[in-house]
Amino acid sequence: MEKYEVRLSGSGGQGLLLAGIILAEAAITEGKNAVQTQSYGPEARGGASKSEVLISDEAIDFPKVRNCDILLALTQKAYEQYNEGLKEDGILIVDSSVAVDKNETHKVYSAPITESAVVNLGKPMVTNIVALGTIIGITNMLTKEALEQAVLKRVPKGTEDLNRRALSLGYEMGENAKI
């Protein structure tokens, strides 16, 4: 049985809730089961934000992450807060702005996710899509095609090209990070 417990963390306003939804929808496209949950503070922007996705071939009972396989941390605060929950052989994916502890024992992949959204694409709002591309590029937990299909279903009309580019950019960064 293949099962992934994914935690996407960062700050409010980075689009991680939507990223979680897209990831779950991509899993459904592939015929898998998926559950997405979130937790948030009262603030709509800026506070710590976390979106969790469970993906499995089988029925999913407990809906929250308990043994995190993959942690995405886009901010230092998110890394410090959630790294503890990542299991021993879990994968840590951080934005390059995050300073990883020198005693970090997890397998770490660092990529300039927020920077490339701003610099290469000129749109900070696609940070979440770049991040999803990066996760898939690194883990291959779902196909790029399924992810693209899910992204295009959710993004606003007229932004399809931008999001396709964001996804490819992230995916490449992910593949490169593995080398």
């Binding site: 998926a34 559950v35 997405q36 949950t37």
Partner: peptide
């Protein structure tokens, strides 16, 4: 809150 806010297939 969990069931109200969670998304699943």
């Amino acid at each position: 809150e969990v069931i109200g806010h969670m998304r699943e297939k």
